[in-house]
Amino acid sequence: MGGTLLGMHVVNACLTLVTLGGYHFWGKAKIRRYLFGHTSFAGDRFAYHGTGKELYQGFLKAMLVFGIPYFLLSAAHTFLDLPGWIDVPAQGLAGLVLFLYVPVAIVNARRYRCTRTSWRGIRFSFRGRTADFLKLYCRGWFFTVLTLGTYYPYFHTQRQAFLHSHTFFGNQRFRFTGHGSGVMIPFAVTLFATYAVLGLCGFALALQLTNAGLALLLIPIVLGPLWIWLRGQQQRYVWNHTSFGAARFSSDITWQRLFTLYLGNLGLLLVTLGWAWPWVTVRNARFFSATLSLHGPADLDRVLQDTTEASVTGEGLSNLLDTGFDMDA
């Protein structure tokens, strides 16, 4: 599968070059169709229905709404001799555009991608309002900064709750019953360990202790596995608290499995100077499929099609800075 994916990328690269970049979006849709078609759940495969034309239109709209204003605001001083009283607010405004872009892109990319994804012929949909997510996002970052990061697990869970609980499969909704406190302990352990290790490194370097550089090794050796453990805990928590009808999702991700996956991916990428990327994609997708399951009566036969049209702008927004949601988000 990785070999086929590599071949598809090669063909896409050639066509993109020949069409001066125009084919990029069609190639992207093709790759996505392939990846979705090779992802199965409960014995049935997903299907992707998005098209290159839609992705291209989304990109153009995103450039118009965010890309060009951001570029003009942030790069104006490169072309014009602007006085400080104009340049500084312009830079601030550019930062604001970028900050607002992320949540808008997350919601709208999810909205678009859901409506273009089907399983057993039934489309997914996302019905959360952008304004609500924007409020949640701004409030979350405000309190996260205010509490020096302590609020982040609540914010993270609220974000997932919003995204999951506004997602529909046909006419039935996914539900999320988690709470920020659920991942509070793993997050607190990771956060304080991070502060401790970084403090220790800073202390050793500041005092120029013998072999102070060795302290820096603590970052990959201690913090690497610790953050992977936290990520595993978060994913488990989110999926274990997501349900569909009377059935519950269950994730059996462990930090050891996640660590092995990441270590393997890193090794593959390093050895091949990055060219093993298609195999890494396949490994990630397989890992996600293998660790997620649905238990209980899902009553899939009662699910009815209920399509809603989604704007393609969101997909373009996600292209712009690559913040599109992952299937595990």
């Binding site: 990328h9 896409n12 690269a13 993109t16 070059l17 970049g21 990029h24 190639g27 992207k28 790759i31 991916n265 890193l266 593959l268 990428l269 390093l270 091949t272 100077l273 990055g274 060219w275 093993a276 990327w277 890494v280 690559d322």
Partner: peptide, 14 residues
């Protein structure tokens, strides 16, 4: 244009 959607490791090489 060549890398398309590739990211992560290949981005370092590119």
């Amino acid at each position: 244009a060549v890398s398309g959607d590739l990211s992560g490791g290949l981005a370092w090489g590119l």
